[in-house]
Amino acid sequence: MKARARVVAAGDGAGGTRLTTLRSEAPLVLRDTPGGLYLVGGAGGPLGGDDLAIEIEVGAGARLTIRTAAASIVLPGRPGDGPSNLHVDARVAAGGELRWLPGPVVAVQGCVHHVEMVVALEEGAALMWREEVVLGRHGEPPGSVRSRATVDVGGRPLLRHELALGPGHPGAASPAVTAGARAVGSVLLAGPEWATGAGSTVVGDRAVVLPLAGPGWQVLALADDAPALRRQLIAGIEAAARHTAGRAAP
């Protein structure tokens, strides 16, 4: 299945935000709700062979939050279908804010999933970007996921972060990488209100909040399951907010 979705959010000049473009294709359906924009997946999926792409544009003064209605359960396709691919391309103008807060990606046994995220922030743009990967459904062995985030601020690199997890990536369960943790996640906080404050904070045994070399923070956590991971990530965001002017509530 090949699907393209595109959303453009523009500031209305009075502190509000209008969606000037909202285009979806099943199984990538974007739905505007009072609580933000929801990405509503079709039943099951992504599926092996899927080629999905979302393009997001946030203009000056606009605020956009994108969530998913549920976890994404990534399933293998039929033999020969190849990997599933998701490409997210986002641009945020100065004074704009994007919060990308999807639910966890659950890599089901046999799946091969690739995620490519490219985010370009203008100087003065704000970003909260969450990524959660759960290796396998409860009690099942996992599939494989590779995700790669490329985030620039004002044309300069802020974060290059690639995760390769599951049986297709030897070394992924190494004590240097995940030590077999089933849930791996991060939140990137960038923009003026997250301008780097004091040193890093240890949030838990397997969770830290890291001031980056550029204007932002990365919360990085491992856990045994999705709820525990979410708790660690929220604790990390709160810790970063204490060091900066950032707003914690996701």
């Binding site: 790669r148 490329t150 690199p157 290059r160 972060h161 690639e162 995760l163 390769a164 190494s174 004590p175 240097a176 990488v177 995940t178 030590a179 791996v184 991060s186 890093s200 240890v202 045994d205 397997r206 969770a207 830290v208 890291l210 990085l220 956590a221 491992l222």
Partner: peptide, 22 residues
């Protein structure tokens, strides 16, 4: 091109380094 260079992360090296520094 520089953005195509690999960026494979090892979360426990980053997490461990902060615990170690403390």
């Amino acid at each position: 091109p520089l953005t195509h260079l690999p960026s494979c992360s090892a979360p426990l090296l980053d997490i461990g380094a902060e615990h170690h520094a403390a």
